[in-house]
Simulated assay, not measured.
Amino acid sequence: MTRINQTWWTNPLSYENLQFDSPYNTYLYAGLPPGPIANPSIEALQAVAFPETSPYYFFQATCDGSGYHTFSVTFEDHLANLCP
């Protein structure tokens, strides 16, 4: 199996991957799964309910592939930070 980006997630998914027998596999079982598929922490919920004040309205991934982000106050600054 070939994996793109060397992550733990199988990428791309094959037809065989979609046949995995699990009640959470909505390709095989219609409707909602029997339990939560994601469970955010209380800290994550609090961060959404009470976001930190910041002057930054724009962000994007940096162009170097590092996984970091560049934040901008104005749309013009945001456009100046776009990758070539």
Score class of each variant (00 low, 15 high):
L18T: 07
G31R: 03
A49V: 00
W9R: 14
T62A: 15
S22H: 05
F75A: 08
F58Q: 06
T7G: 07
A49I: 08
N25H: 10
N81R: 13
L28T: 03
Y57P: 00
W8I: 10
Y56A: 13
T70N: 15
S41P: 04
P12K: 06
M1I: 08
E76G: 13
A47M: 08
I4G: 09
S22A: 12
N11L: 15
F20N: 10
L45Q: 13
N11F: 05
P55C: 03
S54W: 00
T70A: 09
Y15W: 02
F50L: 08
D77W: 06
Y27M: 08
V73Y: 02
F20I: 05
T62K: 15
P51V: 14
N81C: 11
T2W: 02
N81E: 12
G67N: 13
H69F: 14
E76K: 09
R3N: 13
G65Y: 04
G31N: 07
D21L: 03
Q6S: 15
T2Q: 11
L79H: 01
A38K: 14
L13R: 06
D64Q: 02
V48E: 14
F58P: 12
I42V: 11
L79P: 00
P51F: 11
L79F: 01
I4S: 14
Y56M: 08
F59Q: 04
L13M: 11
Y29S: 11
Y29G: 03
F71G: 04
N81Y: 07
P36W: 00
Q60C: 00
H78Y: 15
D77M: 08
Y68E: 13
L32Q: 06
W9F: 02
D64V: 05
Q46S: 11
T10F: 10
P12W: 02
S66G: 07
P33K: 08
L18F: 08
N17S: 15
S41I: 14
L79R: 12
N5M: 06
L45P: 14
F59D: 02
G31F: 01
C63I: 10
